[in-house]
Computed example of a mutant assay.
Amino acid sequence: MTNEINTALTPTSSIQYAGFWMRFWAYLVDLIIVLSINGILLVPFHFMENGFNMDIGFWTVTGAISSIVFYLYFLLMTKFYNQTLGKMIFGLRVIREDSQSLSWSDLLFREVIGRFIHRVFFIAVLLYLFVAFTTEKQGIHDMIGNTRVVIEK
Results as ranks from 00 to 15, higher is better:
M1L: 06
N3I: 08
I5S: 01
I5L: 11
A8G: 01
A8S: 03
P11G: 10
T12Y: 06
T12H: 02
S14I: 12
I15L: 05
F20C: 14
F20K: 12
M22T: 09
R23S: 06
R23F: 13
A26L: 11
V29K: 00
L31S: 05
I32K: 00
I33G: 04
I33Q: 06
L35E: 04
N38H: 02
G39R: 01
L41G: 11
L41K: 08
L42R: 00
P44E: 13
F45N: 15
F47E: 11
G51W: 09
G51Q: 11
F52T: 03
M54Q: 05
D55I: 03
T60H: 07
V61L: 15
V61S: 15
S66C: 15
Y71E: 08
Y73N: 06
F74K: 09
L76R: 11
M77C: 08
T78V: 12
T78R: 09
Y81F: 10
L85H: 13
G86A: 08
K87M: 07
K87Q: 07
M88P: 09
L92K: 03
V94D: 00
V94H: 06
D98F: 03
D98R: 04
D98M: 02
S99V: 04
Q100F: 04
S101W: 00
W104P: 00
D106Q: 13
L107W: 02
E111N: 08
V112R: 12
I113S: 06
F116A: 12
I117N: 13
R119N: 09
V120H: 13
I123T: 03
A124G: 02
V125L: 14
L126N: 02
L127D: 04
Y128A: 10
L129V: 02
F130L: 13
F133W: 15
K137V: 01
I140T: 04
G145Q: 08
T147L: 00
I151T: 07
K153M: 05
